[in-house]
Design a protein around this nucleic acid. Structure first.
Lengths: 125, 125
DNA sequence: CTGACCTACAACCAAATGGTTGTAGGTGAT
DNA sequence: ATCACCTACAACCATTTGGTTGTAGGTCAG
């Protein structure tokens, strides 16, 4: 593990399963109990429980006791973090294109710091 | 697999590993050969080869023969797709908040189609 | 042609994943 | 108190994953 970002590992891993994404989708629309969430899926309740646990460890959802059931709520900050990561990747790519365009154009503005490298910035914000 | 979106599975799974993210990051900055990419990591060349294969199956990178080596290039469209997916999730969440705010405010603009449900839209675009 | 290098792929292995069933602890209603 | 329900968690199993080594095919330089 060269870059060692456990949080991003958990985040993307949690998103890398259709059932979990579906759970997340449905949790966005309203807080549901775990058993209510489990109903549509062709698997045991325990399996869904595990999926929710994965989402929870990734910080994508939180559980809150509401009487005897436990309601699952999405945590939008985590989603925003994942988006930010991909945004950053996109900006890197755009930066590369800009740099190449700059080379082709003859490197007019050589003093610009935005193309300097940016090695010090955190990779995942 | 309730929603059955294999592409999203592969996409997020590919992103769910620090080494693969690092490879992707470095590939954005410039096309490198597989062996050049493999150099920094404390694992065998074959292991890195497998990581690149995972990124390739996810559509995140493509390989192009350049003489005897094979240069790895990032495919920005796939990154954009992943971002779109998370954007959609974010917009769903925002929509829910708006809907709740609307309920609290007394549902002034009831004719708005933006809060109607949107069940027909593809989940991953 | 030979040797060095880059790549591809198979075989194998330990560990993690995704699923199951079973058991047990709380909570609410009767 | 009892019953029904929701949840948590352990034990277990098949498959996948991430890593290894080894073998083999191309491609460039000498």
């Amino acid at each position: 593990m060269v870059v060692g970002d456990e949080a991003a590992d958990r985040l993307f891993h949690a998103l890398a399963d259709a059932t979990r994404r579906d759970i997340l989708w449905r949790s966005v629309e309203g807080e549901l109990s775990v058993s209510r969430l489990a109903e549509p899926y062709p698997m045991s309740f325990a399996a869904v429980q595990k999926h929710v646990a994965v989402l929870e460890r990734a910080g994508l959802v939180t559980k809150a006791r509401r009487g005897r059931e436990q309601r699952v709520r999405t945590e939008p900050d985590a989603v925003a973090r994942a988006r930010q990561a991909l945004d950053h990747l996109g900006s890197l790519w755009r930066g590369r294109v800009d740099r190449m365009a700059g080379l082709l154009a003859g490197a007019a503005e050589s003093a610009s710091e935005s193309t300097h490298g940016e090695e010090g910035t955190e990779r995942w914000a």
